[in-house]
Amino acid sequence: MPVSALRASGWGAILAILPAAARAEGGMPQFDVSTFPSQIFWLVVSFALLYVLMSWLVLPRIGHTIEAREAKIQSDLDAAQKANDAARVAAEAQRKALAEARGKASATLRQTTDAAAAETTASLAAIGEKLAGKIGEAERRIAEQRAQALAGLSSLAAEIAGSVLGKLVGTVDGTQVAAKVAAAVETARKGTK
C-alpha cells in the first residue's frame, strides 16, 4: 500500500532524477528514525496547545457570535413580518373606513340633493300656482273691463245716435233708438270678428 501510493504520487519519477549524491548521503531525512521522538514530542505539544486554544477560546466565541447573529436576523425577520402584518391590517381597516366614509358622504350628498330638489319643485309649484292665480285674476278683470267697455260702448253709441237723431229729426223715441243701435253694434261687432 505505501509503495503503490508513493508511486501514484510520482515519487518514483522524482527519485529517478535525484542526484546520486543526495541518495548516497543517507537517503531521505524523513526516514531518519533518530528525529522521530523529537518530531512526535513537538507534534503532541503544539497540537495539544492548538486544540486547547481552539476548543476553549476560539470556537465557543465564534459559535456564540454566529448563533447571536442568526438569532438577531431571525428576530428582525419576525419583527418585520409582524410589522408587515400590522400594516396590512391597518391598510385593510383604512380601506374599509374610507369605503364607509365614501358611502356615507354619497348618501348625505344624495339626501341633500333630493331635499333641495324637492324644495325647489315645491317652491316652483307654489310660484306657478300664485302666478296662475294672478293670471286668472288679471284675465277675469280684463274680461270684465272689456265687457264693461263693450256694454258702455253700446249705450254710448245709442246716446250718440239718439242725440244725433234728436238734432236731425226732433224728438225721438229713446228706447227704440237704443234697441236699434244695440242691434247695429252687435252686427258690426260680429262683422269685425
Partner: peptide
Amino acid sequence: MLGAVAISSVLLLAGAGKGAM
C-alpha cells in the same frame, strides 16, 4: 509547528475576539 499554532491562534483569536454582528 509552534509557528503554525501561534499564527493560526493569533489570527483566529483576533477573528473570534470582538464577535461583532
